[in-house]
Simulated assay, not measured.
Amino acid sequence: MPAESRTAFSFNNSINPSTFILIGIPGLEEIHIWISIPLCSMYILTLVGNCTILFIITTEQSFHKPMYLFLSMLSIIDLIASTSTMPKILCLFWFNSREINFDACLVQMFFIHSFSIMESTVLLAMAFDRYIAICNPLRYTSILTNPRIAKIGMIAIIRGSVLMTPCPFLIKRLSYCGTNVISHTYCEHMAIVKIACTDTTINRAYGLFVALVVIGLDVLFITLSYFMIVRTVLSLSSKEARVKAFGTCGSHICVILISYVPALFSFFTHRFGQNVAPQVHIILANIYLFIPPMVNPIVYGVKTKEICHRVLRIFYQKH
C-alpha cells in the first residue's frame, strides 16, 4: 500500500488529522523531478530579482519616492509569499516529503492568501500613485507623503490579515473523516475544503466573499484610476507628453496583468471548471503564485529607466 494511502487510512475516523498529505500534481508524479527544475529556477530568480530591487531602493536616496517605496513593499510581499511555499514544494518534488503538519498547513494557507491580498492592495495603491502623478501632479508630493505611504502599507497588512484570520478557524471546525490527502502542491484554501466530509457551505461562501471584496473591488478601482488617467493623457496637446505619461504607467499595467489574469483563471476554474482536469487546476494555481514574484522585478527593472541604469552600473562596477 502506498505511504499516502496508509497515512490517509489511519485517519479515517479523525475530525482533525495531525498531518495532511500533499501529492503534488496528480497524474504527473513521475515527472515531478523535471517540473522542479523550472520551479527552482523561478524561485532563484524571485530571490535575486526582488533582493536586487530592495537593495537598490534602500541604498539610493534618490529612490526614496512613493512609486519606489510601493515597489519595495511589493518585493517584500513577493519574497515572503514565495518562501512560505516553494521550499516545501521542492522537498515534495525532490525527496517525496509529502507530509505537512495540520497546523503548519493552516499557517502556510494563511500566508499564501493573506499576502496575495496585501499584494493586491499595494497594486491598487500603485494605481492611485500613477493617478495622482498624472492627473494632479502639483499636489503629488503633498498627497503621497512618507507617513501616508507608511499608513497605506499598514492598511495592506491589516486588510490581508483580518480577511484571512477567520479561514483557519473555519477549516478547524470541519471534519476530515474520509481522507487527509490534498491533491495539490501546497495548502490552498479550496483544496483543503474539498477533502472535508462535512458541510463546507460557510467556507465556500466566505472564500467567495473574500475573492469578490479583494479582486472585485481592487480591479474596479484600478480600472477607474486608469480611466481617469487615459482621459487626462488624451487631453494633453503634445504627443510627446502623451507618450511620456503612458510610458510611466507601462510597467504597472504589465504587473497588474501578470498578477490578476492567472489569479482570475485559477479562481474561475476552481469554482466553475468542474470539467477541467485536476492537473490544469494545480498548474494554474502554481502559475498564479510563482510567476508574478519572479516577473515583477524584471518588468520594473527593464521598463523603469532609473532602476535599469542603477542595475547596469552595479554590474559594470563589479566587472
Rank of each mutant, 00 (worst) to 15 (best):
F267L: 15
G27C: 11
P168Q: 09
E4G: 03
P17I: 05
P262F: 04
H64K: 08
G247R: 04
L217H: 10
T59M: 02
I152L: 13
L28Y: 12
H184N: 12
T19K: 02
R130E: 07
T248I: 07
I229P: 00
S120H: 04
I298N: 08
I291H: 02
S36F: 05
N13W: 10
L224C: 05
L220R: 10
Q279S: 13
I155A: 13
M118I: 01
H270Y: 15
S97T: 12
H319D: 04
P278A: 07
I100Y: 00
S235R: 14
L220S: 13
K151E: 03
L92E: 10
Q279E: 14
L208K: 02
S75V: 02
S225G: 09
N286S: 09
L174D: 00
F265L: 15
G49S: 01
I256Q: 08
T141H: 12
R242L: 05
Y131T: 07
N286L: 12
G207L: 08
G49E: 06
M294S: 07
P278G: 09
D218G: 01
C51D: 12
E99D: 13
V302D: 02
A285Q: 15
G153C: 03
I132V: 13
L234T: 02
C177W: 11
E188M: 06
P147W: 05
N286P: 06
A3M: 09
F290R: 03
H252A: 07
T200I: 12
T85K: 03
S62T: 11
N101E: 13
L170E: 01
M42L: 15
N12T: 14
L45Y: 11
S251G: 02
I132A: 00
H113M: 05
I157C: 10
